[in-house]
Nucleic acid binder design. Sequence first.
DNA 1: AATCACGCTTGATCCAGATCAAGTTTATTT
DNA 2: AAATAAACTTGATCTGGATCAAGCGTGATT
Lengths: 193, 193
Amino acid sequence: MFEVLFSHILDKVSLTVEEMDIIKSFFSHKVLRKRQYLLQEGDVCKYMSFVGKGLLRSYNIDEKGDEHMIVFAWEGWWISDISSFSSGEKAVFNIDAIEDSELLMITPADFEALTLKVPIMDRYFRILFQNSLVTKERRLMSSITHTAEEKYTQLAERNPEIIQRIPQNLIASYLGLAPETLSRIKKNLASRK
Amino acid sequence: MFEVLFSHILDKVSLTVEEMDIIKSFFSHKVLRKRQYLLQEGDVCKYMSFVGKGLLRSYNIDEKGDEHMIVFAWEGWWISDISSFSSGEKAVFNIDAIEDSELLMITPADFEALTLKVPIMDRYFRILFQNSLVTKERRLMSSITHTAEEKYTQLAERNPEIIQRIPQNLIASYLGLAPETLSRIKKNLASRK
DNA sequence: AATCACGCTTGATCCAGATCAAGTTTATTT
DNA sequence: AAATAAACTTGATCTGGATCAAGCGTGATT
């Protein structure tokens, strides 16, 4: 489990063996079965979780009961309601497992302690959040400026793994489309060439 | 100029006088007149800029020539095309001044050097990006799940300064709405109570 | 192997917000 | 202070994608 985490961290910064031991000590391990919740709206988000294995999603549910996907996270990605995690306020998102998964989790207090004890982790997370910001900015632009079809083809180019791995109705929700619309788009694209 | 920057940094982390001197040495100062460009699409974004005074916007322009606002930044905020800034690839965004402005700017190489020399700056930017991520996530959700009117009223609640300070057509673009639509929404809201 | 449930498709209709087209008001520039 | 150009409003019309409704596969569950 930790190999996945360390290989991910070592991609961005270097660590001594001692630092790796300290890091280990701050994380707890958790197994989640398909469909199991990691976080429910209204609870406080007590963890930032690194996915070592499996696939999770975060989403929120509007007044009409419709789900809106925020993020998918598989091996090598982090998932959390950062807003709730950093502020201690109630989460507005739900997180659950799409596939059986294994996680490494850290609490806000331990996150704070970890970055103070191993300052290079601030750098790691700085880089992580910086990259994440780029992704979010692109998605936001795409959602504002593109047609439904463009959104889908862009996602397919930029994130082929999502297309392969995630059920179509969840992809539709991720793109802010009705499932029927996505179905029709795929039909059109297929027939057109 | 630097007082604004330091007060912003000291809000999140503490600095010694020596560190402050090092930080100073990495930034250059720039004055921008209203409507002047800081970055044009297609150029490489050579700076991350801290706004000490004034107001800027970043936006992109689609094939039809329509502008889409990404961010507004005034005193105490950063502005950049981070994607281009971090990768050295061509920028997809434009940045220009809405009001006469003064900036403190840092290049990618100096940004790297600064974080290595003053590691606590990694922490500062980690926190900055983390907060920024929360904001982006909220905006994305809002753009996917809400009606035009909800988007506007939420913005008005969460970001009253934008409403007061920014021309209405730019706000419309920021929300992904036609200017006519925003005009009608405001009319409705006003008449309704 | 039959039933059930869920995800996907296809068709018909509807609507929020875009677009087009004038005006009007408010800032800039000369 | 006149001229010009932005920014905003109001009305009429149009449309991409949502919604509603029904049927179709395919893989779980008994």
